[in-house]
Amino acid sequence: MEQLINDFSPGLFAMQTFILIVLIFLLSKVAWKPIMGALKAREGSIKDALEAAENAKEEMARLQADNQKLLQEARMEREQLLKEATAIANRIKEEAKTDASKQAEKIISDAKKAIDVEKNAALAEVTTKVAELSLEIAEKVIRKNLSDDKASKDLVSTFVKDIKLN
Rank of each mutant, 00 (worst) to 15 (best):
F8Y: 15
F8P: 04
F8M: 05
F8A: 05
S9A: 03
P10R: 07
P10F: 00
G11E: 15
L12S: 05
A14K: 15
A14Q: 15
M15A: 14
M15E: 11
Q16N: 06
Q16F: 09
Q16A: 02
T17N: 08
F18W: 07
F18G: 06
F18S: 11
L20H: 14
I21G: 08
I21L: 15
V22Q: 05
V22W: 08
V22R: 10
V22L: 14
V22A: 15
L23H: 02
L23S: 12
I24E: 07
F25N: 01
F25T: 04
F25Q: 04
L27S: 14
S28N: 12
S28V: 03
V30H: 05
V30M: 10
V30Y: 12
A31Y: 15
A31C: 07
W32M: 10
W32A: 06
W32S: 08
K33P: 07
K33Y: 03
P34T: 01
P34C: 08
P34A: 01
I35E: 07
I35T: 06
M36T: 09
G37N: 15
G37S: 14
G37C: 04
G37K: 07
A38V: 03
L39R: 15
K40G: 06
K40Q: 14
K40H: 09
K40L: 13
R42Q: 06
R42H: 09
E43N: 13
E43V: 04
E43W: 04
E43D: 05
E43G: 11
G44R: 12
G44K: 13
G44E: 12
G44D: 15
S45P: 03
I46Q: 07
I46P: 01
I46C: 02
K47N: 12
K47L: 03
D48S: 14
D48N: 12
